[in-house]
């Protein structure tokens, strides 16, 4: 008999709503990672167009000068900044730095690893990414 494993799958993994800001940060980290991968592939495709001559390269550059191109570049700035800043928090956390010290837990149990420093770092990552996007928008759409 085939067993029903009852795994949540991608839907469960991608649902950021049930477990607070840490799960939102996990979800954003994944999404921005995928977004940056897509950008990298697109960027390689874009720059490799130079092999087909100057006119092809120029027409490719024209694409980035459109409104849609600017919006995509702004999103890339936001993804890049969030992924970098939150990535530093995660790299330190993965080494056991900033996750608190083991103690005897007291009810109501508030996990030390979800401490205020970690939460502030997540909010700061989102804030810095938003600021970078605003700066990007002002540069790209300014003049």
């Amino acid at each position: 008999m085939k067993r029903n494993e009852n795994r949540e799958g991608i839907k469960g993994m991608a649902n950021p709503g049930r477990y607070g800001i840490e799960r939102v940060s996990y979800w954003l980290m994944r999404i921005t990672g995928l977004g940056l991968l897509a950008y990298l592939i697109g960027h390689i495709y874009e720059t490799s167009s130079i092999l087909n001559g100057k006119s092809v390269w120029d027409s490719m550059l024209q694409l980035t000068q459109t409104t849609q191109g600017h919006v995509i570049l702004t999103l890339v700035i936001g993804m890049c900044v969030f992924h970098t800043v939150n990535g530093i928090r995660l790299m330190l956390g993965h080494g056991g730095i900033g996750v608190g010290k083991p103690t005897r837990p007291d009810y109501p149990y508030i996990p030390n690893s979800q401490n205020m420093k970690n939460k502030l770092c997540i909010y700061a990552s989102i804030g810095v990414a938003a600021l970078a996007m605003m700066y990007g928008l002002s540069v790209l759409f300014g003049e």
Binding site: Y26, S113, Q114
Partner: peptide
Amino acid sequence: FAGSCSQVCPKGVDPAM
């Protein structure tokens, strides 16, 4: 390090840490 394990633990174990 999504931390959801620690949020649901009924005994305050903090698996994420």
